[in-house]
Design a protein around this nucleic acid. Sequence first.
DNA 1: TCAGTTTGCGTCAAACTGACGCTTACTAAC
DNA 2: GTTAGTAAGCGTCAGTTTGACGCAAACTGA
Lengths: 240, 240
Amino acid sequence: MANAGEFPLENRAPAAAEAFEAAAIARPKVAVDTVLFAVDAQGLKCYLLQLGRGPNAGKWAFAGGLVRVGETLDGAARRALRDASGLTDTYLEQLFSFGDPSRDPTAHVVSVAYMALIDNPGRVGAASSKYSAGRWFAAGDLPELAYDHSLMADYAVARLRAKLEYTNIACALLPSCFTFAELEEVYAAALERPLDRRNFRRRIMAMDLLQRMPEQRRGAHRPAALYAFKHRSVRAIQML
Amino acid sequence: MANAGEFPLENRAPAAAEAFEAAAIARPKVAVDTVLFAVDAQGLKCYLLQLGRGPNAGKWAFAGGLVRVGETLDGAARRALRDASGLTDTYLEQLFSFGDPSRDPTAHVVSVAYMALIDNPGRVGAASSKYSAGRWFAAGDLPELAYDHSLMADYAVARLRAKLEYTNIACALLPSCFTFAELEEVYAAALERPLDRRNFRRRIMAMDLLQRMPEQRRGAHRPAALYAFKHRSVRAIQML
DNA sequence: TCAGTTTGCGTCAAACTGACGCTTACTAAC
DNA sequence: GTTAGTAAGCGTCAGTTTGACGCAAACTGA
């Protein structure tokens, strides 16, 4: 549907189309906004950018932008994220669309929210001139955000937490090789609660997601076995 | 973001705005499409409408339409559903947004997919003149659909199944009073697998969602206790 | 009164979960 | 070298949940 009743309009003179239905039809701008997550020693982090222009200048917001001609939503999200952080190969997942006409007081903008994950906060690079600054914030302690971006943040955190439980999404927050302790830190940071080391190991092992690597990580103490995810693409874990 | 860099444009002469950035910015139409579900004796059903106009005339699709000036996405979905089925008070939940510019060959249309649930397929009424017909189909055996509506159908079924497991969403597919057998039929229909009557009862009871009503339903055999959901609003079940 | 059918309670073993003890393997300090 | 300290990683145990299934209770219609 949706597109259905509209086609005749496309084939008529613009004036006729206007008179018939277009008067009521909104032509909102369509935007994408991406909540970028990474985990570091302090916990789950969110990357925010400070707006350099417009009425919201000075406020913090997620990487975003308007969809361009010929672009898919995913494509626009990737481009906006690249412009804001230099990142090109991230895990990206659509979350939810926000379309309240008053969410942006200056124009009707429908925004499709995305979540992106990277394994290391240090990977972010310089932002485009659209932004005056960019930095990581603790996910649980974000500053006041522009528009309805706080809602997006809540949504993103909830989705990430849920998916940690039934998918291998943690692979997007870790390098290709990691120790069990590092995996546990990712879970503990995102879920914001401590996990029992031994039970966590058992639970993850039962999921059969990991592949043991031949090498070990040597540090100050007993060396730790290195693991990799069997599948680097995110997929639901089938509970038999 | 998203809306951010754009404001200066709004305040400039149109020509300047065009030259600066607008050339590349898409102005897609924004549509909503709603996958309407109900359960009857045959199983899970999906309500489809046959398009009466346009290049896809004759094809089946979900209830949808373009977002109008001042409308929220939810509001547009409710209106489109009302126009297509007469329904006004349904459970409604946003699913996913589809924005591939080639999903509709005649125009760039971003469509926000929704799922709606009702307790009785018989509640649907007459459709607007935009459609030439409307009827229920078995959810597992849909005809060829217009646009990317098959994708939406898959997405909707997956979401419904998932939510049955961890929310009280079944309340939207049942009348206010129902027997355990009716509740089980809803689950079995949506999940498309038989459930053990006794284990199902135990599992649902453990969730503590139901309230036993004083009356009983009398039929040809042993009378069945009537139940109602404690909460009619859909909420996640907290696993202690 | 009985056959037939649905309702709804109960049992049992296997699997899973949360809490936690303890050994192993290393480094760094003495 | 010996030892103290620490992270890694194995194992145990009781309580809970899960899946399979037996069976009595409650009703109708013949």
